Amino acid sequence: MAATPGSSSCLVGPVPFKDSIRSFAPAEEYADIITDMPAITVRAGHLMRQWQGAWLPHRRVPGVLSFQRRFTPRPDDVLLASPPKCGTTWLKALSFATMARAAYPPGDGDHPLLRLNPHDCVPLVDSLFSAGQETKLDALPSPRLMNTHVHHSLLPPSVAHSPGCKIVYVCREPKDMLVSLWHFYKSSETTDGSTYTFSDLFENACEGKHSNGPIWDHILGYWPASQATPGRVLFLRYEEMLRDPIDNVRELARFLGVPSTVTEEAAGLLEDIVKLCNIETLRASPAFPHTSFFAKGVAGDWVNHMTPEMAQRFNAIVEEKLHGSGLFLKS
C-alpha cells in the first residue's frame, strides 16, 4: 500500500488525488481578457466563451488561461485528455488502476476506486486552475496522473512539446457524445425554467458551439500529434475500448511504461483491472451518487434521440471536417 500522504520521502504516485495534501489559494484573474472574448448563452444561466477558436464553459476559462501560463510539467507526468462525455471517467479509472497496481492491486477489496469516484483519484486540471488551487498538484508524488478537456492547441507549450510528459486521448463517435452530453445536462438541470432542448444542443453542435467544441477541432488536434509522436500521445476510441477492453488496457499499460508481464497476465491482472473499472461496478459504488457521469455507457444510443435526417446532417459535417486527416469515426 502507498505511504500515508504527508510522508513525501517515500510516497510514490499515482495516489488518489482526494487523499493528497490540500492547500488552497483561490484567486480572480484575467477579467479583462475574458470580458473581451466572444460569448454565447447555450442554456439558461450557462455562458460559454470562445478562446483561440474553442468554446469553453465560462467557469473554466480562468483555469484554461492559468493552465496555459503557469503549469510546469514533470518529465513523468501523464495527462488524460478528452472532449467531455467521451469516456473520461472510465479512462481515469483504467489509467489509475493500471499505473497504481503495485500499491493498490486491482483485486483488493479496499482499492481506492471502491471508495472514491475516479474524479477523486485523477484531478481535472481545468478546475484546479479555475479555483486558484493549482498548488495542490505540487503535493502529488510522481508520476502524477491528471486530466483535461482542453483542445491540443490550448495545452501549455511545456506540455505539448515536452519530451517526457505523456498524453492519453480518448474520443467517441460524435453523435453519441452529443447524446451523452444531453443526458448530463438533463441530470444536472435545475428548476431555472430552462427550455433548452436536444434540438437546441444539436443545432449548436452543428455550428461547433458546444462545451469544448467544435468536436472536430478537438479531435483534429490530438490525432496528428499521436501520428507524429506515437510514443508521447496515445489515441484511443471509446467504441474500440468497449469491444476489447482487455487489449486496450494492455496497450494502455505498455504506453504508460508499466507493461503487463506474462506472470501478471496469467494471474488475471488485465481481467481484474477491467472488472474493477467496469461501468456497472463504478456506478454501484457509494462514491457515485451523481450517476450522470455514466449514462448508459454504450455505443449507438444516438439512434434513440436523432432522426435519420439529423444523423445524416451531422455525419456530413464531421466527415467534411475530418476529410484528409486519415481518421474515420465509425457511426
Rank of each mutant, 00 (worst) to 15 (best):
A44N: 03
P73N: 14
A31R: 09
A27I: 13
D32Y: 10
D36E: 13
T35K: 13
E28S: 14
F71M: 06
I34V: 12
V64M: 10
A54R: 06
E28Y: 06
F67W: 15
R60C: 08
R59Y: 14
Q52V: 12
D36T: 07
S20I: 02
R59G: 02
M37P: 01
D19M: 04
I40K: 07
P38M: 04
P83E: 04
D76G: 02
W51L: 10
W55C: 07
R60G: 03
D32E: 15
D36V: 04
D32G: 05
W51A: 05
I33S: 04
A25D: 08
E29M: 12
Q50G: 01
T72V: 15
P73S: 14
M48A: 06
Q68P: 00
T41N: 05
R22M: 11
G13C: 08
G13M: 07
W51C: 06
L79S: 04
Y30F: 15
A44G: 01
R69Y: 00
P83D: 09
P83F: 15
P14Y: 05
W55D: 08
I40H: 09
W51T: 04
P75T: 11
P75V: 07
P73G: 12
Q52R: 10
P16R: 09
F17S: 05
R69P: 00
T35D: 14
L65I: 11
L47P: 01
G53K: 08
L80I: 15
V15S: 04
T35N: 07
R43T: 11
V61L: 10
S66K: 04
A31Y: 01
T72S: 10
R59C: 06
F17L: 05
Q68D: 03
P26C: 05
G63H: 07
D32V: 13
R43L: 10
V78E: 07
P16N: 11
D76V: 04
P14Q: 02
S20V: 01
L47E: 11
Q50F: 00
D36W: 04
V15A: 04
T72E: 07
D77P: 01
F71T: 01
D76L: 02
